[in-house]
Computed example of a mutant assay.
Amino acid sequence: MADCDVVIVGAGPSGLLLACLLAQSSVSVIVFEKGAGRDDRSRAIGIHPPGLAALRTAGIDDAFRAEARVLSGGTVTSRGRMLAELDFEPGHEVLTVPQARTHALLGERLAELAPDAVRTGMRVRDVVPAGATARVLVGRDGREDEISARAVVVADGVHSGIRDKLRVPWHRIPGSADYTMLDVVDAPPDDRARLHLEPDGVVESFPLPGRGRRWVTRERARALRTTTSFAQTVLARTGLDIGDPGDAEPQRFRAGQHRAARLVHGQIVLLGDAAHEISPIGGQGMNLAWIAACRLAVALTERSDRDAALSAYERVSLRAAAVAQRRARFNMAMGAPMPAAARSARDAAVRILARGGTGRRLLGTMTMSGL
């Protein structure tokens, strides 16, 4: 007899959304999170239409819409010339919400559905398959306890220790680049995403709730920038003043890509960044994880043949991750520094891709349709 139906390791956006979906279906769920404090970093901000649909399934989309900035579309420029201008269709817009608020809203929804589900400061030491169940070894303050579950979902991030213990191969996928980002608190009013394909690398900016805006620059190396040098880089590449960053400091990161060889190991299942790492720009990894969480919730509540349902979850989710990673690789390549001849060919290709039916397909790709 299992102590609960499902244990989720990791209280990030993917783990919390899955917990909400399961609790809605009267599945007993426990979420173990090793952290105990609040994380105010904004990190993933973009919520694409499929991600919003996942939130709607959890009954929380209205709460997100109430706090979000709704983007009307986006532009692509190169050396001051407009290459493309695309408008999101009504009902298919992209929203932006700082990840700290995303985490808070998901946590509040889970507290409504299952008040005692989340247990912080708990480090999962190991997960061991045990026939029709799995044993979870969890420690806190020098003590170690054991709990059994009908299924364990591993959502503990890119550097998943449990995935390593299961010896699941973690394959490097082509596509990586170095970036720096900075959120400003006071920017000119603008509800469009802006991509500047410049000779020294792309500069991207996305509206945030209120008057905020996120700026992201492609780097030639892992640069350590100050707020001043970041603003100077944006100004030199685009001629634009980023506005007032307040107390914010630039954050550098490497957009790398990996994919697990398999997602299901008996009663243990990988989800989110533990299953696949994708370029984080635009919230792609978070949205892909939410889409997968909806599939997984259905599989875990399957009563007739859960093994077949989990196998389908693995197959479809790995295929979706491969598609998303190919798109991310293409996007990173388009924003790389390049010589003049290559830039001219790229700019011409962007103009062609933005036209007519091709432009609508491009817009669908940008908003993560088909995953």
Rank of each mutant, 00 (worst) to 15 (best):
L86H: 02
P188L: 06
G239H: 02
E144H: 01
H258C: 14
G107P: 09
S160K: 04
D273M: 05
S317W: 15
A104H: 13
A84C: 04
A84E: 07
V27T: 15
S14R: 09
W170E: 00
T367A: 13
Q267M: 09
R56S: 13
V29L: 09
A104E: 15
A333V: 08
I268S: 08
G107F: 06
C294G: 10
I173Q: 14
A261K: 15
A58E: 07
V118E: 08
E93G: 07
T77G: 01
L22I: 09
D190A: 01
D307M: 02
A104F: 12
D247K: 14
E85H: 12
D244Y: 07
M332I: 15
A134Y: 00
R326D: 13
E89C: 01
V154I: 15
S42N: 12
D244G: 05
T301L: 06
V323F: 14
H159F: 03
S42L: 14
S26R: 15
D62Y: 03
A104R: 15
V70R: 10
P13C: 11
V316R: 14
D145N: 05
A274S: 14
S26V: 11
L310Y: 06
L235M: 07
V9P: 14
I45C: 12
L197A: 06
G239T: 03
N287E: 05
S72R: 08
G74D: 00
S42M: 14
L197C: 01
A134N: 02
R319I: 11
G356F: 11
A324Q: 12
S78H: 11
L166N: 01
M334L: 15
G107R: 12
T180Q: 13
G35S: 15
A54E: 03
A221Q: 00
V94P: 06
L263R: 10
D305I: 06
V97T: 05
L16W: 05
V6T: 07
S78W: 01
R213M: 00
A324R: 11
A354R: 09
I147P: 01
D183Q: 09
L208A: 00
A299H: 05
T228R: 10
P188M: 02
P339T: 04
L106K: 07
I162P: 13
T120N: 04
R163D: 02
Y313D: 07
L224T: 05
D87R: 11
D241Y: 09
P90L: 02
T227C: 01
G37M: 06
L362Y: 10
L310T: 06
E249R: 15
M82N: 05
L362T: 10
V168Q: 00
A261F: 11
V31W: 15
A275S: 10
A114N: 04
F64K: 04
T301N: 10
T120C: 08
I60W: 03
S14Y: 03
A100V: 14
R259W: 02
A155Q: 05
G175L: 08
N331M: 13
G121T: 11
L318T: 07
L71T: 08
V27L: 13
H159N: 12
R237Y: 01
A328K: 02
S205C: 03
E93C: 08
P49A: 11
S28N: 13
R135E: 15
D126I: 02
V94Y: 07
A342T: 13
